[in-house]
């Protein structure tokens, strides 16, 4: 596949990089990323990956845009309030770059549909806000041997890690199981600075780009934490998997994705 003149101009700042070049840009154009959650983390990630020319981007979210989302979910605008998030996200992505294909899934992601959703994608980006979802995405990606980026944000803090099959700990290796509902604060209860979603969501997009161009080191086997108040970034080395993890270990007991119950208060609050 040869580049069109428009593509050569659009992606010129990529093509000029020795780590990307024409070859890397082609890999991006052939790349397929699924973003689960068109919210704070998913918004900047989707916009940068669209702009970067990742050829196929899927975006899954069941919700509609709410006024309280706009403080950080920069892919949606005031006139999008009430619209399905995936529709609003798709419009912004296609406006940034009509050269790519955007697939929308206006659905709740569950153990029933997650394997079908991630099938055919090269890289999954977790932009969800709750722990049952994060464990579901982890388990499904481990089972389906998909690479994915995990991230979390709260208040002035954020963190992310990348899972690639057979190279380092999975999310469950580190965190075992979701905490009980309300045991640890969520963004809705504790708040989050909008720019934090931008910082961490962009770092997730950066991991996806590096995954495709195969440059540098991914955050496999490590957790990058960011404290915006002290401006400390720390790359914490994670212990090597000991083979006992119930999903990525030598004798896994989790062979199919399953759903944890969602916090009851989450259902009532919205």
């Amino acid at each position: 596949m040869a580049f069109s003149n428009e593509q050569l101009e659009r992606y010129s700042r990529h093509i000029i990089l020795k780590e990307i070049g024409a070859k890397g840009q082609k890999k991006l154009l052939n790349g397929k990323v699924l973003i689960i959650g068109a919210g704070g983390l998913g918004a900047p990630a989707a916009m940068y990956l669209a702009a970067a020319g990742v050829g196929t981007i899927g975006i899954a979210d069941a919700d509609n845009v709410d006024l309280s989302n706009l403080q950080r979910q920069v892919i949606h605008t005031t006139s999008d309030v009430g619209k399905p998030k995936v529709e609003s996200a798709c419009e912004t992505m296609q406006a940034i770059n009509p050269d790519i294909e955007v697939k929308t899934y206006q659905t709740f992601v569950t153990s029933e549909n997650i394997l079908d959703l991630i099938d055919g994608y090269d890289f999954v980006l977790d932009g969800t806000d709750n722990f049952p979802a994060k464990f579901l995405i982890n388990d499904a990606c481990v089972i389906a041997k998909k690479s994915f980026s995990h991230a979390g944000i709260i208040r002035f803090q954020g963190q992310l890690m990348t899972y690639v099959p057979d190279s380092g700990a999975c999310y469950r290796c580190v965190f075992k199981q979701p905490p009980p509902p309300d045991a640890v604060p969520t963004c809705r209860q504790a708040g989050v600075v909008g720019a934090m979603a931008g910082v961490i969501g962009c770092l997730q997009a950066m991991e996806a780009v590096k995954f495709f161009i195969n440059a540098g080191n991914l955050l496999t086997g490590s957790l990058l934490t960011y404290n915006a108040l002290t401006m400390d970034f720390r790359k914490i080395k994670l212990p090597k998997p000991d083979g006992k993890c119930p999903v990525c270990g030598e004798h896994p007991t989790i062979l199919q994705p399953f759903d944890y119950e969602q916090a009851v208060c989450d259902l009532k609050e919205k």
Partner: peptide, 12 residues
């Protein structure tokens, strides 16, 4: 543990 991102993209 850190959640974050968006609300309610997954619901049971």
């Amino acid at each position: 543990f850190m959640g974050g991102g968006n609300a309610r993209s997954i619901l049971y």
